[in-house]
Amino acid sequence: MNTSAQQSRAGGWAAALGRRARHHPLSVLGLLSGMAALAAVAHGLSQPANAQTAQNVRWAFLGGSAGFAATALGALPILFLRRLPQKAEDVMLGGAAGMMLAAAFFSLLVPALEAAERFTGSGWTGALLVVAGIAAGVALMLGLDAFTPHEHERSGPWGPGHERFNRIWLFVFAVAIHNLPEGMAIGVGYAQGDLKVALPLTAAIALQDVPEGLAVAMTLKAIGTPVWRAIAVAAAGGLLEPLGALVGVLLVGNSVVAYPMGLGLAAGAMLFVVSHEVIPETHRNGHQTLATVGLMIGFVVMMVLDTAL
């Protein structure tokens, strides 16, 4: 490709980003939040790590890898399933949404509020600290949703420059956007070495990754993607979970201030995904009642799991 063509493509991409920024000003804050988070991670990497920090990083990576494995495992049933009834898919995704909601409340927000109150000595001030984290998480997801080209399962391609990618890559980006905050949540959970927070959170995210992996793989199969490629694409999106876990654990580190804010950030990001993506997907086919029942079941299962662990 000649230089003028490359410059034309770059100019078109920049123009698309500019239009997106003008129409979604809050999303720009999300991108800035993401860049600030990456700067904090880079700073953490530059600091000497003690034995406990290194152990927390290893556990976080293993926890994120469990989410990736669950996503890949969930895609495997398409080897023998010809199709997944829409009703079943909506119920399964509703259950996944319920697990994510319960994880956000019991495994992220409750320990975040407790840690913030211990640090500040005030329930009100501690709550404001957590709210700041939630706002940062929502802003981050707004930025990713607005500026990352990806495929919405039923409303089609979205994001600047989406026409430059084929539909399979857009599905990869869509799964990755879902899995990044989940991986970050796992990483933040291990940042202080508190397994009472981290293990239920890891279990919940891994469990809800199974129906998500199956739904993505079945959708890809339905549009004519070869079976093994559909499995590979669904699994590839799950790679963001171990990477996100590393970002989460390094972002928080041993800071008593960053820990409750990091938990709030992960909770805000997960709540955004549930409200903006998962629940609307389950309510578009006339099965909203069953999807809501699935959500309640998933919520209760996660609540019991969190209590038991």
Rank of each mutant, 00 (worst) to 15 (best):
L170V: 05
V300Q: 03
M303R: 12
V233A: 02
E163N: 08
L108K: 02
V233Q: 00
P226Q: 05
G286A: 03
Q52S: 12
V249K: 11
E153N: 09
A51W: 04
A42C: 10
M296P: 04
G74Q: 03
R9S: 11
P149T: 08
E212P: 01
L271H: 05
G94V: 04
M302E: 10
F61Y: 12
S33G: 10
V188Q: 06
L62R: 07
W124H: 12
A203W: 09
Q47E: 15
G253R: 04
G64N: 11
A69C: 11
W169K: 12
R118T: 07
A198W: 03
H162I: 07
I168L: 14
P77W: 07
P85V: 02
R22V: 15
M1S: 11
V188I: 08
R164C: 09
A204P: 03
I297A: 13
A266Q: 03
A70G: 07
V233S: 00
A36N: 09
L263E: 00
Q86F: 01
P157E: 10
G64Y: 04
Q52F: 07
P200E: 15
L17A: 10
V175A: 14
I186W: 07
G44W: 06
F61G: 14
A115H: 13
I168N: 11
M35D: 06
D90R: 12
G237T: 11
V210N: 03
K221V: 00
M100D: 07
H276F: 11
N179Q: 08
L84D: 09
A70R: 01
A132R: 02
H283R: 15
S155T: 13
A112N: 00
A112D: 00
A37M: 15
E163H: 14
Q288D: 15
M141C: 04
A102K: 06
G262W: 04
K196N: 12
T307H: 14
Q6L: 15
F147N: 05
T307V: 10
M184G: 06
A96K: 02
A21W: 03
T125L: 15
S255A: 08
L305P: 00
H276G: 06
D90P: 05
Q47K: 11
A51S: 11
I223H: 05
A269K: 02
I134D: 02
A37P: 00
Q192G: 10
L290P: 00
A222T: 07
T125I: 15
H43C: 08
P242L: 00
D145I: 02
A269H: 03
Q47V: 00
A291Y: 00
P85M: 05
P211I: 10
V216P: 07
P226Y: 02
G133S: 03
A127W: 13
D306P: 07
T292E: 07
L62P: 06
T3V: 14
I205A: 06
L271K: 06
L101F: 14
V293L: 15
A15T: 13
A16H: 02
Q55C: 09
R82G: 04
G126V: 01
V130W: 03
F165H: 13
G34F: 09
H23F: 13
L295I: 02
F147M: 05
P211H: 05
G183D: 12
Q47C: 01
G63C: 03
P260Q: 01
Q55L: 15
L243H: 01
